[in-house]
């Protein structure tokens, strides 16, 4: 029973030992009669207690597959996972399915994009929350019910006792996402992975959920991995940002550093693509040309080279190596602002 989570460090203690350390994670999909597809192609990053790490990128960049691989939630057949994901001294990728099930929901929890399909439609919200506690903390249903009401209250669901009896379809999208967060928090997880938790929600509801997540990280010291396509969300929430492209991290940096001084042309391209509320009308956006269909294989080139405005000769001949460390760095032959 790991209810008494011993958070060794205080929130924000960025220099402590990593809680989760992903190294060279690779996920290869192999479908019958088709070429292998490297969805995740050597991703490494660290997450420390109380830290929020963002994985950001467009569809197909491998950000969701990364999280599913760490959680052991990829379908059993048709894929190959290699590398390591050390969580608290143990490699999650080599754990047995049953050992992984014990970790999931208790020490590591996940929040998904679509709250309706992540909740069981025929079981009440209360039952779904208490179930997690019964499973991982050995509580009886009687003991768990008041705790479930407390949890719902904590995530900002009004009138929590009555809501315990509701079914998912009786709640709005924002309330469902809150219920899902309550379930994820039921056993005080040390690591929370949120996969596009606000994409299906309206902006005003998104703002509520992001504020809630921010508060949770500060209050409990839970480490948060935030997977999103929205650089705006990242800017407001994440301490560290990893920009993914074609299954690789192409740039990493602290929140302020990365937005002030982006090095990889893709990061710059993304930032220039976003219409901003505080920019005047008529400013032309400068989008990244082409689409991911133009990508080159990483094996002998930079995947982004065909869409890159900074491309030079080596870009289409060699694989760019990681320049930097586990805190900041990029993968580019000709970064913005020169190689320094």
């Amino acid at each position: 029973m790991t209810q008494a989570t011993q958070h060794s460090s205080r929130p924000g203690a960025g220099s402590s030992e990593p809680l989760l350390s992903v190294r060279d994670l690779r996920v290869t999909f192999q479908r019958q009669g088709e070429e292998e597809f490297h969805a995740v192609d050597g991703v490494s990053f660290d997450v420390r207690p109380g830290q929020t790490v963002g994985l950001v990128g467009e569809s197909g960049c491998g950000k969701s597959v990364t999280s599913l691989a760490i959680m052991g939630l990829l379908p059993g057949r048709g894929n190959r996972v290699s590398g390591s994901a050390i969580f608290d001294g143990e490699d999650l990728l080599t754990l047995s399915p049953s050992a992984m099930r014990d970790r999931r929901g208790s020490e590591i929890a996940m929040i998904f994009q679509d709250p309706l399909s992540s909740l069981n439609p025929v079981i009440s919200i209360g039952r779904q929350v208490t179930e997690v506690m019964e499973r991982h903390q050995g509580l009886s249903r009687k003991q768990a019910t008041p705790k479930a009401a407390d949890l719902l209250e904590r995530v900002g669901i009004p009138d929590p006792k009555a809501r315990l009896l509701n079914y998912p379809h009786q709640l709005s999208g924002g309330m469902r996402q809150r219920a899902l967060i309550a379930m994820a928090l039921a056993c005080n997880p040390r690591l929370l992975i949120a996969d596009e938790p606000t994409t299906a929600l309206d902006v005003t509801i998104q703002a509520q959920i992001l504020a809630l997540l921010k508060e949770l990280v500060v209050d409990t010291g839970t480490a948060l991995v935030m997977i999103t396509h929205d650089l705006g969300v990242v800017a407001g929430l994440c301490d560290e940002v990893n920009v993914l492209y074609g299954g690789k991290v192409v740039e990493r940096g602290g929140r302020h550093g990365l937005f002030r001084d982006p090095r990889h042309p893709y990061t710059v391209g993304l930032l220039n693509s976003i219409p901003r509320l505080d920019a005047a009308r008529g400013d032309k956006l400068s989008p990244v040309p082409g689409s991911v269909a133009d990508n080159l294989p990483w094996t002998a080139a930079c995947a982004f080279a065909p869409r890159c405005s900074n491309a030079i000769d080596p870009c289409t001949a060699e694989t760019p190596q990681w320049e930097g460390d586990q805190v900041v760095g990029f993968r580019c032959f000709n970064p913005m602002g020169g190689t320094r």
């Binding site: 710059v268 220039n272 400068s286």
Partner: peptide, 8 residues
């Protein structure tokens, strides 16, 4: 908006 390098 903060200043950001424009592409080459």
């Amino acid at each position: 908006p903060s200043r950001r390098p424009t592409l080459g």
